[in-house]
Design a protein around this nucleic acid. Sequence first.
DNA 1: GGGCTGACCTACT
DNA 2: CAGTAGGCCAGCC
Length: 112
Amino acid sequence: MNRFQDKFDPRVWEVVASIPPGRVMGYGEVARAAGFPRYSRMVSASLGRSPEPLPWHRVVRSNRTLAFEPGSSAYREQSQLLKQEGVRFDGLKIIEVEPDDSLDRILWGPQD
DNA sequence: GGGCTGACCTACT
DNA sequence: CAGTAGGCCAGCC
């Protein structure tokens, strides 16, 4: 009964909520992580119907571009939210900021 | 049942 | 690296 729930599946919710700030995941990646390979389209449908506020802006296409039409209000909103978290853009493509502890190491020393 | 749609993906050219 | 083609799955006529 591993079946995607109508409207919204809590497993998708958990996966999306677990994406740390400054990092992004593809729709397909989220689907796999939630246990539903090839359900990328359902992930997008779920995000729009989430009952709770989710960091939906951290979910992007597998090619590292946003899923909205460039210039649309949704696109601007998502890109702004991502930039606030330190994500950089090279035109339409996202330059994912590495988990980059390089700076942390300089400031705080090796974590280990 | 058949056909179209969508915040998609992979493979191939 | 960009563009195209075919595949995927649930929801709604």
